[in-house]
């Protein structure tokens, strides 16, 4: 962990130690936990939410919930697992709430100057901020077409490369449910891609 490496050897405290201190009453130590995990949580939240303020809201909710539920952490599993499970569930809840006011619509601007298929072949560099934003928008738009559960499973399995067992641990869903959702996710994504292709063909012709 980046933040952990920055501390000197004597100052390094494990997550579990920090949790014990915070539960013991020293609330200020929670800031150290936030500093350690916030880049990862932001990275995760931005996979699900295009709007920056939505991502910030979710991250804030995640850390607030973590603080409120910290006393329920038993320490049997690593804190990281417990925390990631809470984070994914918070993202899922936020996605469900947002489903009532969808932001993902297939815009014609996505087909303006470059073929959609061609775009998939060109992954922009980290320095190309504009290209990266466009690419992310493309991914959001396609993933926005699939159901929330399926999206969570697809993101964890296909984009983050997690195994079914890991996903069951993170989400708390049964293995069969995860497998069903993974299958459904691929199907829904294929349908979304097909819609894109047919739309592109229509626009081109």
């Amino acid at each position: 962990m980046q933040a952990t490496k920055n501390f000197s050897e004597t100052d390094v405290r494990t997550d579990e130690e920090l949790v014990r201190i915070v539960v013991g009453g020293d609330v200020d130590c929670f800031e150290e936990l936030i500093t350690r995990y916030q880049p990862r949580v932001f990275g995760m939240a931005r996979k699900y939410f295009r709007n920056e303020s939505d991502a910030e809201d979710v991250v804030q909710t995640i850390f607030t919930k973590t603080f409120q539920k910290l006393s329920s952490y038993k320490g049997t599993a690593p804190f990281e697992h417990w925390f990631m499970r809470l984070s994914v569930n918070a993202c899922y809840d936020a996605l469900r709430r947002k489903r009532n006011r969808p932001e993902h619509t297939i815009s014609d601007t996505l087909f303006d100057d470059e073929s959609w298929q061609d775009r998939l072949g060109n992954i922009p560099d980290a320095s190309d901020r504009e290209g990266l934003e466009e690419a992310r928008e493309l991914v959001y738009t396609v993933l926005g077409q699939i159901s929330d559960r399926a999206r969570i499973v697809l993101t964890l399995q296909e984009l983050e490369g997690r195994t079914i067992k890991e996903i069951t641990e993170i989400t708390g869903w049964s293995e069969s449910l995860v497998k069903v959702q993974a299958f459904r996710a691929r199907k829904e994504m294929r349908a979304a891609v097909e819609r894109f292709l047919s739309r592109e063909k229509r626009i081109v012709t």
Binding site: I34, Q38, L132, R136, V139, E158, G161
Partner: peptide, 27 residues
């Protein structure tokens, strides 16, 4: 196209940028 999309999304670098003093805001 489906596979290409997944590959594209997988290789897209994540944005882990944290807004300034975000931890203070949460605290």
């Amino acid at each position: 196209a489906d596979e290409r999309f997944l590959k594209f999304a997988r290789n897209l670098s994540g944005n882990e940028h944290v807004p300034y003093a975000f931890e203070k805001r949460i605290m």
